[in-house]
């Protein structure tokens, strides 16, 4: 009950926030943070709950961004049609990639490396398929499916909320328990009748589909497509958000996304020093708060309660 009240309070505050600030700057940062948050929360379903360190998440995000544009342009289905088709495409690709990795029982480091290789394949395809993707120059998106920062704010907030609800329901169901079993001891899960292959694949594909929606929105808010969306930097950024926010609560990665999206804008140094300071803050916080901001806060509250 207390948790429900807390959630309602945060939701109300976020809904009312644009009334308090007219600043386009603040809203823009929040839109980016919400969309990155979607990406981090969905990644955490695969990583924090099912225990699979997928490096394919950035690829799902970037493929969907490109596919939304290309489907919209070449099939004439419009932006939202493109979003749905892109998610379907990403789902199909994820099932294939996941099936290969899980059929060969790739675990931990091996799974990360092979999914990274698939991710690089996708990035190189985007980079070199000039006629479709305009290569390294990327594409400027002229279309404005959602107009104005305020509208974007509510769309991004809504998308994040849906992602959180879906992940919350999954994690707190029998399927979430199967995910946890796989992360903690998959051999035992197997003898208890859990189809390890199936639920790894479900977690991986569900996470990728949510990343796809995030990618379709993100690119159009940004207004451009470029191969960097699919790069290892994006993957590492997602991991950093999850580690910083926390892995053991569905919404915790959003905290990491907020901090890491806002931080570069709050540090007023020259570009070189800024990356150094940014990196140092990240390393320091992960060393001091191994359970992330969420874990540290929860511990603090428990100590004082």
């Amino acid at each position: 009950m207390k948790r429900l009240a807390g959630t309602a309070l945060v939701a109300a505050a976020l809904l009312a926030l644009p009334l308090a600030t007219q600043s386009d700057f603040v809203l823009t940062i929040l839109v980016f943070a919400f969309l990155q948050g979607m990406l981090a929360v969905s990644f955490n379903l695969v990583f924090g709950y099912a225990g699979q360190l997928s490096m394919f998440h950035a690829a799902a995000f970037g493929i969907a961004a490109y596919a939304t544009h290309l489907f919209g342009k070449h099939l004439g289905v419009g932006y939202w049609g493109g979003v749905v088709l892109a998610a379907a495409l990403v789902a199909a690709i994820s099932v294939v990639v996941g099936a290969i990795c899980f059929r060969f029982r790739l675990r931990e480091f091996y799974f990360a490396v092979v999914t990274l290789a698939f991710s690089e394949m996708a990035r190189l395809t985007v980079l070199n398929w000039n006629s479709m993707t305009n290569g390294s120059l990327g594409i400027n998106l002229q279309e404005r499916p959602i107009d104005g920062t305020l509208a974007w704010y509510y769309v991004a907030l809504g998308a994040l909320a849906i992602t959180l609800v879906v992940c919350w329901r999954l994690v707190h169901s029998w399927m979430g328990r199967a995910f946890v079993a796989i992360r903690l001891n998959d051999e035992l899960g197997d003898t208890l009748g859990i189809n390890v292959f199936r639920y790894k694949l479900v977690a991986f594909t569900a996470g990728s589909i949510m990343a796809a929606f995030a990618g379709s929105l993100y690119a159009y808010f940004l207004g451009s497509l470029e191969p960097g969306l699919l790069s290892i930097d994006t993957s590492l950024g997602i991991i950093a958000m999850v580690l910083l926010g926390g892995r053991r609560a569905v919404a915790a990665p959003v905290l990491g996304a907020l901090v890491l999206t806002a931080l570069p804008h709050l540090i007023h140094f020259s570009a070189e020093i800024r990356s150094l300071v940014y990196g140092a803050i990240l390393i320091f916080s992960i060393l001091v708060m191994p359970q992330g901001i969420y874990g540290a806060a929860a511990q603090l509250i428990r100590r004082h309660a």
Partner: peptide
């Protein structure tokens, strides 16, 4: 169904949580 000679458990979880996971098949 088989049990293990050296207990195989899910670290971090409580006994009750173990049983809820093991309820998968019944469901």
């Amino acid at each position: 169904v088989k049990t293990f000679q050296n207990p195989q458990l899910f670290p971090e979880l409580t006994a009750l949580e173990h049983l809820l996971i093991a309820g998968h098949l019944a469901l």
